[in-house]
Amino acid sequence: MQYLSIHSTVTSATIVGLDTEIKKRVKGNIEWMSSRCFVFDGTLSHETALNGSVGILFADPGSEIGEVLTMEAGPNGLSSNPIWAQELIVTCFEIQKANPEQYPNILSHSFPFNRLTSAKKIQDDDRLIHVLRRLINSPEETVNVEELAHEIGMSESWLQHEFKNVVGLPIRAFRKWFRIKTAVIALKRGATLADAALNAGFYDQAHFTNVFRDIFGISPSIIFKKGESIRWYIQNEQIDTILKVL
């Protein structure tokens, strides 16, 4: 049995057990919850016990799927067995049998909520586009929020409020997620833990390991060890396309 220690995923997510139920416990609670599928908000602090294969879907901030998962998680930030749970299980089994180049087609046909629309809100404001471009294209930079606000000619309080309103996360949480995502993409392509950490803006490998464990409840050295049987798919988000073409 695999155990994921207390963690908060920053962004909303869902996890499904392919072989058996999953156990999850919210921080501060004594009793464990059991379910075949959980949906949870990124702010939820929880621990997880897994037995067998699982499928996990993390939503990028500002995506339609993120809004769907957040609403499904409910006011307590956690819910179980959504109506699309069986569809998610079937999709995971299809991915297990498919080649990586088939993943996008499988997901596009299996999920009614994998299209992104929230990025269109961002297109309406060139100031937010400038901020997002800085955060995504240069994750290794240490960006001062006050300096960002000055660059776009707005107050720091306006930027903080409007960014969270449009994207769904505070600026610092958004930057943390995309630094982790940048490092994971590098690891997936064969980079060492040290190189992936430094290029994504972490101080060193230990810093990256600590942040990764805080988000996922497990060390990256376990996830990315040689021979580990994991199927990965990282979608090319619409928000990335918007930032590149403008």
Rank of each mutant, 00 (worst) to 15 (best):
N51S: 14
N76V: 07
N144E: 08
H7Q: 10
I242F: 06
T43F: 11
P170I: 08
W158M: 13
H7C: 05
E162A: 07
S53A: 06
A194E: 15
K164M: 11
A85W: 09
F38A: 11
I242N: 00
L88D: 03
H150T: 15
S5W: 06
T91G: 05
A149F: 01
L198F: 12
K24M: 10
Q2W: 11
E64S: 05
D19S: 11
I136T: 13
T9R: 06
H46I: 03
N81M: 11
Q2Y: 05
G190M: 12
N199W: 15
S118D: 09
A196E: 07
E151A: 15
T192L: 13
N199S: 15
V166C: 04
E146H: 11
H150L: 15
L50F: 10
E101R: 12
E101Q: 14
N99S: 13
N137R: 05
T70S: 12
E72H: 09
I185L: 04
P112R: 12
L4G: 02
K181P: 02
L50C: 09
L193V: 14
P61M: 01
N81F: 07
T142I: 14
G227V: 07
F93N: 09
C92F: 12
T20L: 07
D240C: 09
P104M: 03
I171W: 01
F216T: 06
L57Y: 08
I56C: 04
A119M: 04
S229R: 13
A59Y: 01
I239E: 00
V16Q: 05
S80W: 03
R175S: 10
Q96F: 09
K181F: 01
E47G: 01
K226P: 07
G62A: 02
P139D: 04
P61Y: 02
T241N: 12
Y3D: 12
R231L: 09
A49G: 07
I56T: 04
G66C: 01
N99K: 14
L69H: 03
